[in-house]
Simulated scan of single mutants.
Amino acid sequence: MIPLSVLDLAPVCEGSDAAASFRNTLDLARHVERLGYRRYWLAEHHNMPGIASAATAVLIGYVASGTSTIRVGSGGVMLPNHAPLQVAEQFGTLAALYPGRIDLGLGRAPGTDHATARALRRYFDSAEAFPNDVVELLGYFEPAQPGQAVRAVPGAGIEVPVWLLGSSLFSARLAAALGLPFAFASHFAPDAMTQALARYRQEFKPSARLQAPHAMLALNVVAADTNDAARRLFTTLQQSFVNLRRGKPGLVPPPIDDIEAYWSPTEKIGVEQALACAVVGDPATVERGIADFVDRHRPDELMLTANIFDHAARLRSFEIAMAAAAAGAR
């Protein structure tokens, strides 16, 4: 069976707050750990009222401290927002505290709007230096050399798996050139998925970190006991994407009965294109959907995400998804 992992944005739902979001995040992490999921990743976003994972490294430490076996990491840290040395120190600290359980996924987008990106970067106006920053960051995890002027303390000599994340050919080709594992953001930007996977695998160069290409795809999976219930739960994510496109990101909305009354025909086309990699339905539907997606694209791992308003329904969705994937693999 293909390994399954979880991508969490620490959603802040209407009528709730960040503190409740963090409690739910830890509860979900413990739940999926018991179910056998491999990784639990959190994503860096800023100035988004419905996403509480801005201080990603802090939240990773919170989740890792409350779990025992599942790998915990970033999906990802947006490197242009940070100095490579600071990221190495943060994740070196996490890896020292939780050895063998920390992943570092890196992205080159700001994870926010232009005004907030400027506020974050201050002296850095673009992601053009991303390849050099990745190389610099990787160097800080190497054993420190005599006379080395700058070292990550902790970080130097500590094993931290580094992934590159992306939704285009750029990061796919960079991951291949550097010999790193690659995760594609197919859960919200699937257009270049097939081409990016092909380029990554064709151009991969073995490295000390990785001998053969290793690719992970993200997939929206919203599961419930019936198809109708799952489709209703999915309207939360559909509304969130519409709101974002309208320039009005807010708290995570509750599901609605009629999504057609919420969006315009143009908005519907755009959202359905963005969420094309989604499996929504009852256990049998989810079993077929996951199996078909894996057969078609052949990822080495699959990362599931589910932006569901009700926490209990979210727990149940990941439970159904794991059972469905196991059944489909038999």
Rank of each mutant, 00 (worst) to 15 (best):
Q273V: 00
A88V: 09
R330S: 10
F293H: 11
A83L: 00
E89Q: 04
P161F: 07
A115L: 13
G289K: 12
D125Q: 03
A64P: 02
V12P: 03
R122G: 08
V87A: 00
M322G: 14
S16K: 09
K205M: 13
I158Q: 08
L164S: 07
F22I: 09
S16C: 03
Q211A: 14
R118K: 13
R231Y: 02
L79T: 07
R298Q: 15
L180W: 04
P253C: 06
A57D: 06
L137G: 04
R246C: 09
L94Q: 04
T226G: 05
D228W: 00
N132G: 15
P265Y: 09
M193P: 05
R108G: 01
N227V: 00
L244N: 15
F22M: 02
R209V: 01
E136Y: 07
T236E: 08
A327W: 01
R71P: 12
L174F: 12
H82K: 03
V271M: 05
L9E: 13
A192V: 02
A323M: 11
L59W: 10
S21F: 10
Q238H: 12
P3L: 03
A83D: 06
I308Q: 07
A149L: 15
R173C: 08
L9H: 14
Y200R: 04
L59E: 08
V6G: 09
Q86I: 10
L237K: 15
N132E: 15
E142S: 12
F91D: 03
F241H: 12
Q202R: 13
W163D: 08
F91H: 01
L197D: 15
A215G: 11
V72D: 01
R246E: 10
M303R: 06
W263R: 12
L174K: 10
A192F: 08
A325L: 12
T266W: 09
W263V: 11
A55N: 13
S207F: 04
L237Y: 14
L137C: 10
V77Q: 02
P131Y: 12
P49G: 02
G139V: 09
S126I: 10
A175L: 07
A198H: 06
P213G: 05
F124S: 15
D191R: 15
G92C: 09
F318V: 04
T56S: 01
A129I: 12
L94M: 01
L97I: 05
A177C: 04
H46K: 04
P80V: 11
N243G: 15
P146H: 12
G107T: 12
Y200C: 09
T93K: 00
G50L: 04
G73Q: 09
H46Q: 03
L233N: 10
P181K: 01
F124V: 15
A83I: 01
A212V: 13
T226P: 09
T69G: 00
L79F: 06
Q238A: 12
A144W: 01
E159S: 03
P181Q: 05
E203L: 08
A327Y: 00
C277S: 14
G179I: 03
G179C: 00
G107I: 11
Q273L: 05
F170K: 09
R122A: 05
P49M: 04
T266R: 14
P110I: 11
A325C: 02
S264K: 06
N307P: 14
S74L: 00
A115G: 13
